[in-house]
């Protein structure tokens, strides 16, 4: 389990992080969401040891995270970086070795990843000769080559075509299924909703909401959506505050069982459920609060 505890960081007069905490269990995919400049990248850089925090700590499996353990993490920074004039295969294997693999292990793992990412034919090409999308795949391979225990990915989906998004999403799910805690940040909230077990929302250096996707959705639920197969207008009959949304009635602040009874009496109930906000709506709500 990876825990980020009470991180604080200032750049000059700017407060970048003001007591940020989040955690990821083994096998859990955590979406890290926030507006530009909210502190996502700073928090992830600190977790990866690239930046030092003013205070706070990173705890891995109950003990402060050390350099040796961190070498078994996989990291994709928001600013993508590869050696432009180095061959794809050599480059991925080099990072495998830097992460502590033997040369043979690194080469084998590189070949496997290139196969998975449909890049086998480009193994001897310089990275600068690849398309941007393929460079992104190489970037992913660099963060996965050493079979990382933990994945920390900053905007892994940005700039990817839909096929690459699927490849990336599958890769993340696979790592999580293998027991790795996965934390990634993204502005593509539909992806976050689809892939993540839990979501952490950060705004201006503070965590403003966090929890499992279901918890967050349940917390924001307000309206009961009812659809009844009847010509009759039930607006006056239903209790609480009632609004029409096309054919549907949106009911707020009423006993749901009573609403169901009245609706059922009027006709066949074809839809009866609380509206669940999307993660995007929750995010907008949380950020504008």
């Amino acid at each position: 389990m990876l825990e980020i505890k009470d991180l604080k960081k200032r750049f000059g007069d700017t407060v970048a992080l003001d007591g940020v905490s989040l955690s990821a269990e083994p096998g859990e995919v955590v979406g890290f969401v926030g507006a530009n400049g909210a502190g996502k990248t700073t928090a992830m850089r600190i977790a990866m040891g690239v930046l030092a925090a003013d205070s706070g700590e990173i705890v891995y499996n109950g003990a402060p995270l050390g350099t040796e353990q961190r070498r078994r993490f996989g990291y994709m920074p928001s600013e993508r970086g590869l050696y432009p004039k180095m061959k794809t295969g050599d480059q991925i294997a080099y990072f495998g070795e830097l992460h502590g693999m033997s040369r043979a292990e690194a080469k084998r793992s590189t070949a496997e990843l290139l196969e998975q990412l449909n890049l086998t034919g480009r193994i001897g090409d310089n990275v600068q000769d690849l398309s941007l999308g393929n460079q992104q795949r190489v970037q992913l391979a660099v963060s996965l080559v050493h079979d990382p225990e933990v994945l920390i990915l900053d905007e892994p989906f940005s700039g990817l075509d839909p096929i690459a998004v699927d490849v990336m999403g599958t890769a993340l799910k696979e790592r999580a299924a293998a027991g790795a805690p996965v934390i990634f940040s993204s502005h593509q909230l539909d992806l976050v909703e689809r892939l993540c077990d839990s979501v952490v929302i950060i705004g201006a250096g503070k965590i403003i909401a966090s929890g499992s996707v279901e918890e967050l959705k349940a917390r924001e639920v307000k309206q009961l959506r009812v659809r009844v197969d009847t010509a009759e207008d039930l607006t006056a009959q239903l209790p609480g505050k009632v609004e029409r949304d096309g054919e549907d009635y949106l009911v707020e602040g009423a006993d749901d069982q009573e609403v169901l009874r009245i609706a059922a009496a009027a006709g066949r109930v074809t839809h009866f459920a609380y509206d669940q906000p999307t993660i995007a709506e929750i995010f907008r709500e949380a950020v504008t609060k």
């Binding site: 690239v50 070498r71 990291y75 920074p77 600013e79 970086g81 050696y83 502590g100 660099v142």
Partner: peptide
Amino acid sequence: EEKSSRIVEILLTSL
């Protein structure tokens, strides 16, 4: 080169 290509950020996680 390492700085401008930002690769230094990945390198510094293991070096």
